[in-house]
Nucleic acid binder design. Structure first.
Lengths: 358, 358
DNA sequence: GTGAAAGCGCTAACAC
DNA sequence: GTGTTAGCGCTTTCAC
């Protein structure tokens, strides 16, 4: 780690020019075998690792793709010191009250998809989960490091996005198609919610319909709501109640607590995402409501927790891994052909019927 | 995106030298306000984003930390085309037979921790999940892009690790401490398993003890087994059966299928990880075994699925997010002071008692 | 098949 | 406070 060796060092030791060293690394078969071996030996001997900075500068491309997601603001606590000795192992009984799992599944899966696709195209992946005030600065910083950037919709100002897009391709994830000149990749939110709601209406014929929305600034939430109203109109249903949610489980719980249940009439609680629906289920179960006889509940997203809940949650499944892949794919496509018209890819979803609303 | 502007372009437009442009970006308060504003205006007008390659080359540091994990080999399928129209939404009933969730939780959580800690120290995070033959090349490539690298134990040859370590700090994740000169970060596998096993022995006094190991090349598995044998010795237990597992749920199932259960005697199945234990539970439940009256089952890791199983799984919880954080922390510490002695941090674990073995 | 040399876009002395 | 200048370590013509 004392002064990393460079091409020059390798060239010296192998008795060749730096150009040849470069060739051995980039296009080995243009170099005579004997020469090549000398170079490789030198590389090994010196512990040479080419600098991506220098390479990126000279080649004018980094071979890195960036993925920007808004961050886990919750976890800004300093690194907890190992309070206990590692040898001490406390034994605690988990009666179910222990903290819920970190439910960043969405991020995790999109990331996985992005990583896979990046790798397939020979790119490395840089992730950034900006938090707080530094967000815009971070995006700008990342933009300087990569050949293309995927950004979650609504997490960065259009202005900055436009700024960055002058330098590299930008694809917006999970935002509805907008005529902003960017590439877009999203799931079929509207039709998905419409299909689910229609199913609820036609199969269960609820006497009462409650819709729990997401945050006002979420494009996903808006699209889902549109799908919902379309289904409502199509079914000719009147008197729907719309409650304002925020995509959190806690909010779902709060809403369920205040929900007055009519034992005689079937109520449908249609939530704009799974978290909210799970919160609703938490409280409804505790209140002793009969699901799905008395109340049916639905979510949206298809997160793992919905498969394990009791009752299991009926939902619309988004292909999150595919979202990540498609985003990276869109970037590489544009890198290959910058002249491409702005693309807008909408991935299909699937309604998953489970016990909360069969 | 036509020819990205450089410092020179900005300098021209702002009527200053490139040094001043650099200053405005790196240390704004050393520049007169009026000058600064001219520069900022030019930056904005031109859509200037500094090149991290050039910056990294000049400053001799990238401000990026790398995280290497073995990859999701399963997912190499080409990007599935959107077979259906987005408007078509199939409705399927999920009777529980749909494919199991992608259980890369370990990766996900470590990554999250790493990202957080990297951000706190002002670093970006680059992730790589190498697959197949390209693994070593990938690690080498990443090594050239970052200021420090965290690598999952046993995924890269010692030789390559040593090669890379000549250039940048390397920390090994989840491997037992070894005298290899690298920094290590791991969880307290041995003591954790020992504490759990002791609990099983003293509380349940099983007539028969079955231990299911992990793959032979897993250091985690080896440490856990050591902890187990320590507990066995301490409890003076004889005639333990040790089965060879591989950390997969399927293997757990297979083992449970062949397990002969004596209705009269309590059997303890102690598994070296949660996946295996969940597989055991799957089959035992199906076979109608009474848990925990007739059989007690334990796992190790504390993955989410164990919280949702029936019965819920008793296990040892590893602080995975903390592992990621600690790894990055170790790297930044070494970057700050390269003279540091090789560190070996072992994070504390916790036994979580749930219904499979209260 | 190999070498010489001109950058790539920035930072960091060092002058002024 | 601001400008000049010398690299940083590589890729890539263009000669030979």
């Amino acid at each position: 780690m004392t002064k990393a060796p460079t091409v020059y060092d390798v060239a010296d030791r192998a008795q060749v020019s730096i150009a040849t060293v470069s060739r051995v690394l980039r296009s080995p078969d243009t170099v005579r075998e004997q020469t090549r071996e000398r170079v490789i030996e030198a590389v090994r001997f010196l512990g040479y690792v080419p600098s991506a900075s220098a390479r990126g500068l000279a080649a004018r491309r980094t071979n890195v793709i960036g993925l920007f997601f808004p961050g886990h603001d919750d976890l800004e606590a300093p690194l907890a010191p190992a309070a206990r000795e590692p040898g001490e192992v406390p034994i605690v009984t988990d009666d179910g009250s222990l903290d819920a799992e970190t439910e960043n599944l969405y991020f995790d899966e999109v990331l996985r998809g992005a990583e896979i696709e990046a790798w397939r195209h020979g790119f490395a992946l840089m992730v950034a989960a900006g938090r707080g005030a530094s967000r815009e600065a971070l995006v700008n910083d990342i933009a300087g490091r990569v050949d293309g950037l995927a950004v979650l919709a609504r997490t960065v100002s259009d202005e900055l996005l436009a700024h960055v897009a002058r330098r590299i391709p930008v694809v917006v994830l999970a935002g509805a198609e907008r005529d902003d000149g960017f590439d877009h990749v999203s799931a079929s939110n509207g039709p998905g919610m419409a299909a689910l709601a229609s199913h609820v209406f036609s199969t269960h014929r609820p006497a009462r319909v409650v819709y729990v929305s997401g945050p006002g600034d979420s494009p996903d939430s808006a699209e889902r709501f549109e799908g919902f109203t379309a289904a409502v109109d199509a079914a000719g249903i009147a008197g729907v109640e719309v409650l304002h949610g925020d995509f959190t489980r806690e909010r779902g719980r709060a809403i369920a607590r205040e929900l007055e249940l009519d034992p005689a009439a079937l109520t449908a609680v249609i939530c704009s995402n799974d978290q909210t629906a799970l919160g609703v289920l938490d409280v409804l179960e505790a209140r002793g409501a009969r699901i799905p006889e008395q109340v049916v509940v639905t979510g949206f997203d298809g997160i793992a927790a919905g498969r394990h809940s009791r009752p299991r949650l009926t939902t619309v499944h988004q292909p999150m891994v595919e979202l990540g892949r498609a985003a990276v794919h869109a970037i590489t496509a544009r890198l290959d052909d910058p002249q491409l018209e702005p693309q807008s890819l909408t991935l299909p979803v699937q309604v998953l019927l489970r016990e909360s609303c069969p």
